[in-house]
Amino acid sequence: MFKPKYPPDYTYTPPVTAYTTPPAPVNTDTTAPAPLAQPPVPMPIPQAPARPVVQLTPGSVATVVVGGTAVVLVVGVVLVSLLLAVAITAASVAVVAVVARAILNDSHKGR
């Protein structure tokens, strides 16, 4: 009941793949091959497209400097604000811990 049924071996056919090539015919002719009528023409090499030349003017340099400075300032403000948020949170947790400790100590002394 649980044994698989395999087909008999004589029904097996090997799969055909695209990579199999038929054997090359054997040349039994001993004469020299006929020369080609014209030599093969080499293929032309494609040329790379011409790239535009980047020209730096004083206005473009100033724009890049101002833009870079603005990016640095914005990233700095964001990082400082994140650090400040972490510091405020830590201070709040410390205050809550001190208040909770004082409440617990008072409740134990009152017994």
Rank of each mutant, 00 (worst) to 15 (best):
M1Q: 05
M1H: 05
F2I: 06
F2C: 12
K3L: 00
K3Q: 07
P4H: 10
P4F: 01
K5I: 04
K5C: 06
P7H: 03
D9L: 05
D9S: 04
D9Y: 00
D9Q: 03
Y10R: 04
T11N: 00
Y12R: 04
P15C: 03
V16F: 02
V16A: 14
V16K: 09
A18C: 07
Y19F: 13
T20Y: 01
P23I: 08
A24K: 06
N27H: 11
N27W: 12
T30N: 08
T30Q: 11
A32C: 04
A32K: 13
P33D: 05
P33Y: 09
A34K: 15
L36S: 03
Q38M: 06
V41E: 12
V41I: 07
P42E: 09
P44K: 09
P46N: 02
A48I: 02
A48L: 08
A48G: 00
P49G: 14
R51K: 15
R51S: 15
Q55T: 12
L56H: 14
T57A: 00
S60C: 01
V61L: 03
A62W: 10
T63K: 08
T63V: 01
T63G: 06
V64R: 14
V66L: 10
V66K: 13
G68A: 02
V71S: 03
V71F: 10
V74D: 02
V75Q: 09
G76Q: 02
V77K: 00
S81V: 15
L82A: 10
L82G: 06
L83P: 09
L83R: 13
L83T: 07
L83D: 00
L84H: 13
I88W: 04
I88F: 09
T89H: 02
A90Q: 12
A90G: 08
A90M: 12
A91N: 01
A91H: 08
A91M: 08
V93C: 03
V93Q: 10
A94H: 01
A94R: 14
V95H: 09
V96D: 11
V96I: 13
A97E: 01
V98M: 04
V98S: 08
V98A: 14
V99S: 09
V99D: 06
V99F: 14
A100M: 14
A100W: 15
A100K: 06
R101W: 04
L104M: 08
L104T: 04
N105I: 12
N105W: 12
S107A: 15
S107I: 11
S107L: 15
H108E: 11
H108N: 13
K109F: 02
K109L: 10
